[in-house]
Amino acid sequence: MSSIRVRAQIEGGVTNVRALISHPMETGQRRDQGGNTIPAHFITEVKAECNGKHVLTANWGPAISRNPYLSFQFEGAAAGDTLTLSWVDNNGESDTTEVRIS
């Protein structure tokens, strides 16, 4: 199962994308009950491509909320096209998913 849940719906030529990613987004400032710092762990980059064309690149800092939500809109796609969404975090972990525009 992917860590990304994404929906892409086209209406009047504009594709509306809504995505939810499950990720802890630790700032590196919080402490656990023993007083130890919880190390920073957050997504640094999210990329969206449609038919191999760049749609949006997000650079994120630790100030994006846990289990991040991202929504954006773009023109020039058709129903049935594939949107690819991927993320990378500060530990080098990553995930990618594809969704068909409906």
Binding site: V14, V55, L56, A58, I64, S65, P68, Y69, L70, S71, F72, Q73, F74, E75, G76
Partner: peptide, 9 residues
Amino acid sequence: GTRAFVATR
């Protein structure tokens, strides 16, 4: 072609 629109938390 990407609109000036972005939403997050």
